[in-house]
Design a protein around this nucleic acid. Sequence first.
DNA 1: CAGTGGTCTAGACCACACT
DNA 2: GTGTGGTCTAGACCACTGA
Lengths: 250, 250
Amino acid sequence: MPLPPSDSALPSASPTFSPLYRQIKGLMLRALVEGEWGPGALIPSEAELAARFGVSQGTVRKAIDEMATENLLVRRQGKGTFVATHSDPRAFYRFLRLVADDGVPRQAQSVPFSCIDTTASEAVARALKIQPGDAVVVLERFLDFADEHVVLDEIFLPADIFGGLTLARLQAEERSLYNLFESWFGVRMIRAEERLRAVSAREPAASRLGVAVGSPLLLVERITYTYDRPVEWRRGFYNTERHHYFNELT
Amino acid sequence: MPLPPSDSALPSASPTFSPLYRQIKGLMLRALVEGEWGPGALIPSEAELAARFGVSQGTVRKAIDEMATENLLVRRQGKGTFVATHSDPRAFYRFLRLVADDGVPRQAQSVPFSCIDTTASEAVARALKIQPGDAVVVLERFLDFADEHVVLDEIFLPADIFGGLTLARLQAEERSLYNLFESWFGVRMIRAEERLRAVSAREPAASRLGVAVGSPLLLVERITYTYDRPVEWRRGFYNTERHHYFNELT
DNA sequence: CAGTGGTCTAGACCACACT
DNA sequence: GTGTGGTCTAGACCACTGA
């Protein structure tokens, strides 16, 4: 096909110009948000997508390239392109930056111990872009490394998505939270922002982590986003005596 | 030209296969390391490079694409492709993740107060991949936000590159350190690794930052790399009372 | 083997910057 | 207008996967 149909914005329509491959990307993004392709699913081949959208394979390829670098899709040569998922072992704790000082990679283990329904405070509402007073679920848990409590997390989730979450259900599972959220509520965590501060340990965090009141802890606040909105706010106290937060700057 | 010269590894030579564009990237990388194209320089156009390497423009483009996403090169439509530089205002404090709690972007200001020649300890040698006892330069400085000392940095530099650095020269400049290093020593900082911990303030850091002994500080250790080797190790104490370390997870 | 993504090419045209 | 990078196309062939 020499040219795409004449309805949509072509390169010559210069104001607010958006290249074709980005429009294709937008269409594919919508397919993801609307659940046409669920987490872990195999999406159509490049040739099929090219036919469906009436563009060349190269244009589809460029759209997929961008979505792959954004960790939305995963390409596997010879097999096809898949929707990224937190049940992929390579992404189990994709957002966890804490590592042991000795450098030995160990698997973290989530240990939930509280899960209650409440309403959003001002701060929580601001982070989650909901109204103060809206229903939220508050989950508390430890992250263990080698059976030691290293992180104490307080996790706020909007009830319109996460309603019905209970401690019993959580404790019956070994998987990472984001893996569970994906299969239970169909929410895929895409990106997150973290804000870090050093603080002095207070109760009850101090005794829960087994450190003295007043000892330094790393406070990590995280807002996590799905495709189009924030869906999680968490405050974590990290004990950095034998672990550290690792960050690569590029 | 239908095919490149037959000397180097072609796709058909399958063991340790490396695509053409990656080989081109290697050649361009060497031109950067060897200084053929200095920081900020305009590199040849895609068509010229394609002719020089005997490949198509598309292949050169893919090599440049990768180097641009690695922040080695900067493309500017209509003008050309340039070697990235820390004197570009958009990269002034590219590796600085500290921001004010109110979110207002303020320019940081480097305030050096000590610069001495010494020899590498075990720890410094390990970080810089040099031998213990090798000559190093140790620089101490504050980072100020709105005329307040927020960060206290201790910076270790190998003397084989940074020999001759003096406090007087540093204090006569307003630019960022990496900007100075680039123009004075020809060293471009490419990427860095940071390790973060919460610690209790001790002397002399506490009084230098104007906080009480025992108050929590964020300890940030950074190893910075140029194209091919580590060239800086720094320990920074961050006062996170009114600022925080911001990190985006993708 | 067929089907998928990965690489490479060649050529056309568009958007942008400078002169 | 000229030269640059940016987009889009069409087709060929390679590398990997699994039946």
